[in-house]
Each structure stands twice: as C-alpha cells, then as structure tokens.
Amino acid sequence: MEQLLDRIIAGFEAADIEKRKDGQVFFTVPKPKVLPLINHLKMFEGFRNLILMTAVDWIEDNQFQITYLLNNPDTKTDLGIRTFIGRDGEGMDSIHELWGHAATFQREMKEMFGIGFPGSPRVDEPFLLEGWDDIPPMRREFDTKKYSEETYFPRPGRETHDPATYMKQKLYPND
C-alpha cells in the first residue's frame, strides 16, 4: 500500500492523502492526471473494479469534486481518487470504455449536477428525471424546500410556535 501510494504520488502528483482505515485511501490528483492514473491502476495495479463515481458540490469554492472509487479485489484495497473541476460547465473525460457501468454514473452526474462527459453513451438522455426543466437538482443552489413549497400545497391549518417567543408574548410582552 505504502509503495503503491509512493508510485502514485511520484507519477501522478497525488496530494491531500487521507488514510481512512486499513486498505482505504483518498487522495486528490489534478484533472489531466485522472485518466492516465485510472488506466494505470486498472492495467498494472490490479484495480479492476470501479465501485462508484460521483460528484460533490463545493459551491463555496465554485468547484465540483469528482470521486472515483476503485477497488482491487485481490489485495482488498480501495483508492478514492478525487479531482476538482469548475462548476460552470466544465466537463470531465469519460471512462465508459474502461467499465461497462461507468456510462450510467456519468449519465446520472450529467443529469444531477450538469457535468458533461463528452462521448459517453446516452449521456444526455434523462436517467431519473424525465421531463425535468429546472436546474440540475443536486447542485447546491437548488433549494429543495423552496421547490416543494412552490410545487406542492401545505396542509391547511398548521401553525407552530417557538417556545421562547411564545413565552415572551405571554409573560413579558413589553420587555
């Protein structure tokens, strides 16, 4: 594991290494190094299994984190590869040629975050949200509560009181 990490740091500029537990490490690599690294890991290091890929929205830094979680079933190790891309329409290279199910992940990320994966099969077809016309909902600026308040109707007659405010009204309104 240590040697593998040394190779990744040396060859692919991996940084921010976070060892979560035995056999599970997360690290960040620059975007251009992601595909070479994944290819290398799959071909030469035994990381044959793509567990998941997904995005995390860091809206405050104006970037998306894309995480690829690769697994080596022989050594029972997981590598979490993080990379950061811009939030404003910047796409990511597709890995659909490497794994059969990568296209599904990429399709979902296109729909939920608006991250483009040029060349990925059926990437523009709706996955879960047929007929959705709002912004990609997993982006953090999408406000679920506001959406539900506008779309659905609340049950009439509901009201609640904050205990401290209510006690002020009742016990010491003038203070």
Binding site: P126, F127, L128, L129, E130, P137, M138, F142, T144
Partner: peptide, 11 residues
C-alpha cells in the same frame, strides 16, 4: 427506465 420512485434522498 427508472425514476418512478425517485425521492431525492441524497438531496
């Protein structure tokens, strides 16, 4: 085709 039961839990 999925999405008939999408409740957006992760959101």
């Amino acid at each position: 085709h999925v999405g008939y039961l999408h409740r957006g839990f992760e959101k």
